[in-house]
């Protein structure tokens, strides 16, 4: 069973109460082994980068065992808004 972008999106949205999520399957043929993820969540506020990434890693602990490449960007709603301008 391969992991889908939709599955990751749903799980992160649920567990990190994300207000915005982009999940891109960057594996060849979209076979679910490489993902690029952008997550916007208020839960990241006041947390340094390492802790934010740890939150995401913990949420996808099981899935990451089967994912070979995982890139993440973790933003607070405020940072995300600034980036949109």
């Amino acid at each position: 069973m391969s992991i889908t972008a939709e599955y990751i999106k749903e799980k992160l949205q649920r567990e990190l109460e994300a207000t915005h999520i982009d999940v891109e399957d960057t594996s060849p043929n979209h076979c679910g082994s490489a993902f690029n993820v952008t997550i916007v969540s208020a839960k990241f506020e006041g947390k340094p980068l390492l802790q934010r990434h740890r939150l995401v890693n913990a949420c996808l602990e099981e899935e990451l065992k089967d994912i070979h490449a995982f890139s993440q960007k973790t933003l607070t709603p405020e940072q995300w808004q600034k980036q949109q301008k």
């Binding site: 890693n57 990451l64 960007k73």
Partner: peptide
């Protein structure tokens, strides 16, 4: 380091992060 991926970077014995974090730093 309780970190699921390689590469991993350490500065003065302290875990800094992987590729994403180093790139953003």
């Amino acid at each position: 380091s309780s970190w699921p991926t390689i590469p991993q970077v350490f500065l003065s014995g302290e875990f800094v992060g992987g590729c994403d974090i180093l790139l953003q730093m």
